[in-house]
């Protein structure tokens, strides 16, 4: 470094801002500020608790429905009406006041109706339909349940209960369950 640079640096480094100026520039110590929303914490806690209850209830209901459907599927009770026509089965199950048309999409092309009977899922009157998978010939059980408030809270889920795969979903005003032996 050039000597004159050093002299200039040393000159300025000897110059200091007085302590009183430093103190004046010092911002006040942080002090805890009262929360602007003191009610927010309990509200958040309450919402989390409600959410946990809701999710827990939904989860347990979903599990219960899947378990009941799996049990019914495994029982392989005889169909009261044997027909491959959904309208004919619906006409015979005249206590049922909701549609027994098959689910949308490719279901009708993939499965053929074998027959149907009454059943109940979670005390709700439901239709239990036996269907055959066209590609494999494997028998499955389709459950159609009116969409009550309890069922409407359930998400589309898949379960495995004692060797039975159970798929649950909602379409329109109906709740469906499809059980398949592994």
């Amino acid at each position: 470094m050039n000597p004159i640079d050093t002299q200039i640096r040393e000159y300025y480094q000897k110059q200091t801002l007085p302590e009183e100026n430093l103190q004046a520039m010092q911002p006040p110590e942080d002090t805890p500020q009262p929360s602007q929303w003191p009610w927010l914490l309990p509200l958040a806690a309450a919402m989390i608790a409600l959410l946990a209850i809701f999710l827990g209830k939904s989860f347990s209901l979903s599990q219960a429905v899947a378990a009941e459907i799996a049990k019914n599927h495994t029982a392989q009770l005889a169909m009261e009406i044997s027909s491959s026509d959904y309208q004919e089965v619906a006409a015979q199950l005249d206590q049922i006041d909701f549609s027994l048309t098959p689910p949308g999409g490719v279901f009708s092309r993939q499965f053929t109706l074998i027959g149907g009977r009454y059943c109940s899922i979670q005390t709700e009157l439901a239709a239990q339909l036996r269907v055959r998978e066209n590609a494999t010939g494997k028998m499955h059980t389709l459950y159609i349940i009116p969409l009550t408030d309890d069922f409407s809270a359930l998400k589309e889920t898949k379960h495995s209960v004692k060797g039975v795969k159970v798929q649950l979903w909602t379409e329109g005003d109906r709740f469906f369950g499809l059980a398949s032996s592994k």
Partner: peptide, 27 residues
Amino acid sequence: NWFNKSGIRETAQFRELAQSGFRYALS
């Protein structure tokens, strides 16, 4: 805050920067 309670380093940085600012102003 330059002066948070755990901020010895921040305090030193503050002083160094304030002195630099002062020397620049003096120049």
